[in-house]
Design a protein around this nucleic acid. Structure first.
Lengths: 219, 219
DNA sequence: CGGGAAGTTGCACACCGTGCAACAAAGGCG
DNA sequence: CGCCTTTGTTGCACGGTGTGCAACTTCCCG
């Protein structure tokens, strides 16, 4: 199981406090959004539950919705990190598919689905999520540029990355919509969808690819 | 030249006033954003310049940034409309490419580039723009569903549309970045970029496609 | 004309986002 | 350890945002 907290760097008191506070705020925001709905939360509530002042909240996040995108950010950050560890001589698409597949094994995946569903009913949260994907796009373009060198044009790179992320997003959307209840193997189901959408992308969308959800339930 | 105002439907006084007011607000917002920067505008300023009350502004738009996405909305709406007029038996990708190509001939295209550049320096505006593309995505998925019937899965459709829009977005970004000054043929340059990115998409990003900017200057 | 439907406006109110200055905690150093 | 610097937290104030509501105006239609 991939963990988001296994960077074994010795943090000073200062750094650690900041990480903890950030975590506390993000958790408080998510809990509140779950209980009263993402549209009804206020910064005061989040700050109160996280045990910090309203002012401190704004030292960490620009808005209540931003505190809810932490999970999305770490997911995408993790995917980028995993991508960086792929062998350079592997075909590009294989690296990409494997990066996201690995990443779907991260902890707390079902909460991501919940977040996706929340965004369906709240414009501001949706915007924050879209922005998170956009930020990731920029970072990934940079990483790809380092891998591919100057051979690839800006247009090629940003179109490619945009498409890859669009496919992943579509996979997550479809997964979130079709698995409202988190099952044991929801990770597998997401993985299958990501594989399917990225395969369609590689084939230029000539044909739809069926989703292989693994062995039927009960076998 | 495509126009956004040639729907020859006889509007009543009520409808016409609303259209005019909406237009006035959008123009006021854009003018202000140009002069003082998109981050420095207030709703009061926009409302004042448009000749309506602050309260009325919020009857039309949810935020100052939303008033700036009208151009993006009409661009995408127009593309969808054009797409609807393509022959049903034409290959899908050809229809898509032609739809956007036609749409680049719309009026006031250079202002779109300006808007893209504004979004680079203003997170809220960027979010509003991303949201506009997202809304269009939903509408286009619906239109495609009607064209393709039940044969296509949800995942196929949303991945495809997401990719097409990502490519278009990448083309506009590249175009906006590379043509800070609006030239006579900036429409041609955008068209070439859209064609290139969508061609790469059709070929599964196997190879970068060069941008054909037309005959070199001076010929 | 007259009355109902639709739209605009001012007002009040809660909430947002930020500069600022006072305060507290952490880290470095002799 | 004591002192000082650096970094982070907090309260406060202030202007801006977004919305429910009720009064008012404009439009439409019989």
């Amino acid at each position: 199981m991939l963990s988001t907290t296994d960077h074994a760097e010795p943090l000073g008191r200062r750094e650690q406090n900041k990480v903890d506070t950030r975590h506390a705020i993000a958790d408080a925001a998510f809990d509140l959004a779950r209980s009263v709905g993402p549209g009804a939360i206020t910064v005061d509530q989040i700050a109160g539950r996280a045990g910090v002042s309203r002012r401190t909240f704004f030292n960490y996040f620009r808005s209540a919705e931003d505190a809810l995108t932490v999970r999305t950010d770490t997911f995408l950050e993790l995917a980028l990190e995993v991508f960086g560890q792929m062998p350079q001589d592997e075909p590009l698409f294989d690296s990409i598919v494997r990066s996201f597949s690995e990443t779907t094994r991260m902890e707390g995946l079902s909460l991501h689905g919940e977040l996706f569903r929340m965004a369906d009913t709240n414009p501001d949260l949706l915007r924050a999520q879209l922005h998170a994907w956009e930020r990731a796009e920029t970072r990934i373009v940079g990483a790809l540029r380092r891998r591919l060198g100057a051979a690839a044009s800006d247009l090629y790179l940003s179109a490619l990355v945009g498409c890859v992320l669009s496919c992943t997003k579509a996979a997550m959307r479809d997964w979130a919509a079709s698995t409202p209840e988190a099952g044991d193997d929801s990770g597998k189901q997401l993985e299958a969808r990501i594989l399917a959408s990225l395969t369609m992308l590689r084939d230029g969308f000539a044909d739809p690819v069926a989703i292989d959800d693994g062995p039927p339930a009960g076998s």
